[in-house]
């Protein structure tokens, strides 16, 4: 083995990186070549000197403490949100499931709210006219005859107590035909039908006013009563205590004021024990 080759191999020999055969050849050369052996010894001495005397300053205590604090901060237990993020990153399927659940949590209530908002957004005026049309389309006798109106209502709608007459026997102009209980605007509503001579229907809605924006457009105030001609129907509305009264008549019907006055005179005509 030549000296140049040994010179290149001594560090590998120190490192234990030579194969057994090659290491044996290098050792044999070092034993036989005084020049290479001398270099080997000088290098070994230099390595020892470097290891023992070369400066290797340790990290100052203050710096070490700062690093410990810094690393502790970086590895401190993270918030539940950060942990959730890590979990989701590790488990994509879980991430998809959580996102779907969150979407449902948001969308379902939102959808319900929108449905609810859409229903309650139907104005009282519109609903009163709709009910008047529905009753007219049925062309049937109201399900509750006059004679049974009060006890039946008391049975079917315990929260409404009629303490005064709705019929006016002396009034031939407005004859009470009957009534029934409807469910409009998310509440129970008493619907009463009068016939104006000879058989022009007039619908009266009596309902708890809580939560209803009253009055509504396009109602205009005349005295204490709001009135509007809407969709071709005559309507009159007023609030009495916690109740709202709405009268709707056919287009051909004349002035509703006399009936309104009769109903208003009996201030205890209808009272509510508790809101529906």
């Amino acid at each position: 083995m030549r000296c140049e080759i040994v010179k290149d191999s001594v560090d590998a020999l120190r490192d234990g990186a030579l194969g057994l055969t090659e290491a044996a050849e290098v050792r044999a050369h070092l034993a036989a070549c005084s020049a290479c052996a001398g270099e080997w010894e000088l290098t070994e001495a230099l390595r020892v000197t470097i290891r023992e005397r070369a400066s290797a300053p340790a990290a100052p205590d203050a710096f070490r403490e700062a690093m410990v604090r810094l690393l502790e901060r970086r590895t401190a237990p993270r918030s539940w949100f950060a942990r959730l993020q890590e979990t989701l990153r590790r488990q994509p399927l879980a991430a998809i499931a959580v996102m779907a659940a969150m979407a449902l949590l948001v969308l379902v209530p939102l959808n319900l709210w929108m449905l609810s908002a859409r229903e309650t957004s139907v104005p009282l005026l519109e609903e009163a006219i709709n009910e008047h049309i529905r009753l007219g389309l049925r062309e049937a006798i109201p399900e509750i005859p006059v004679a049974e109106l009060q006890p039946l209502l008391a049975r079917h709608q315990r929260r409404l107590d009629f303490s005064g007459p709705l019929s006016f026997p002396d009034d031939q102009e407005h004859r009470l035909v009957g009534g029934h209980v409807s469910y409009l605007l998310h509440r129970k509503v008493l619907t009463v039908t009068y016939y104006h001579r000879p058989n022009r229907p007039i619908t009266l809605l009596v309902l708890p006013g809580a939560g209803i924006q009253f009055p509504e457009q396009p109602m205009s105030l005349t005295g204490k009563v709001f009135q509007a001609v809407h969709r071709g129907f005559r309507t009159m509305h007023w609030q009495q205590g916690s109740l709202i009264y709405s009268l709707v008549s056919d287009p051909e019907e004349a002035d509703l004021t006399p009936l309104v006055e009769k109903l208003q005179h009996g201030t205890t005509l209808i009272s509510v024990l508790s809101p529906s």
């Binding site: 290797a56 300053p57 990290a59 690093m67 690393l71 502790e72 590895t75 237990p77 890590e86 990153r89």
Partner: peptide, 26 residues
């Protein structure tokens, strides 16, 4: 990425080499 425990162990191992890193940087 590593778990919290793995990071903690890694940091402790890392700190054992702080002096050597400091001196090499020096």
């Amino acid at each position: 990425s590593l778990t919290e425990d793995e990071k903690d162990r890694f940091c402790r191992s890392l700190l054992t080499h702080l002096d050597a890193l400091y001196s090499f940087a020096w």
